[in-house]
Design a protein around this nucleic acid. Sequence first.
DNA 1: ATTCGGGCGTTCAATCAATGAACGCACGAT
DNA 2: ATCGTGCGTTCATTGATTGAACGCCCGAAT
Lengths: 121, 121
Amino acid sequence: MLDEQTRYRLLKLLEANPELSQRQLAQALGISVGKVNFCLNALIERGLVKARNFRNSRNKLAYMYFLTPAGFEEKARVSLRYLKQKLQEYETLRSEIEELQNEARRMNVQTGEVLQEEAGQ
Amino acid sequence: MLDEQTRYRLLKLLEANPELSQRQLAQALGISVGKVNFCLNALIERGLVKARNFRNSRNKLAYMYFLTPAGFEEKARVSLRYLKQKLQEYETLRSEIEELQNEARRMNVQTGEVLQEEAGQ
DNA sequence: ATTCGGGCGTTCAATCAATGAACGCACGAT
DNA sequence: ATCGTGCGTTCATTGATTGAACGCCCGAAT
């Protein structure tokens, strides 16, 4: 449920915008309200996030989800892990693309440049 | 069910190794037998793959799933689409990594190089 | 004082991709 | 005949995810 990407993106979003509602978080992350609710409560339970009241722009009482000190530490760890993972993915992707390009080149020979034209547009 | 990646990897695998059984295909692709069966039947139904009998290494009767001419054409199209998609992902990943590295740099300032050491190992 | 409307967090039945154990079948070996 | 093996196929189960529905709260309007 709490995959690395969601964890990272949620923590980052909370750090930058603690005033977002669960619905706004859901929309910003492209996930469902239910999932945000679940993840947020998990973070709160682990003491990484605290909910606090504040007055929003329409002067209504609302929640604010801000990172605790432990939350900031966790976010640093998660970011680093996420970065490493992305660098790994990057390398994997690089060789996969290379392989695909070799394949496309082989195809070109057989199909008389048809693919190259197609790829151009 | 038939996402672009599975479609590409299955067609590629069939082109190179038509003699693989559904179980072997599943293992090679890291997906379940049921999914391979479903995908394969979809390909057969669309006339992109044909099943044919042959004698395998143990001299047992077995199926061979080979690409039809239409299958080869489809594979070329899928490969190209997949390549484009991967190039796109590559660019996205590049900027995401850049952003993560900026973030890590900012953190370094605040945490006194702790993260850099951590990243080293 | 009362009603209303809107946005909030929360819940949970429904959905859907995916799994892999179980099945019947075909066939070579014994 | 009979086994054993590996095949394709099936389908109940799992598990993640969804989003409609709910009750609640509170400011505004009546």
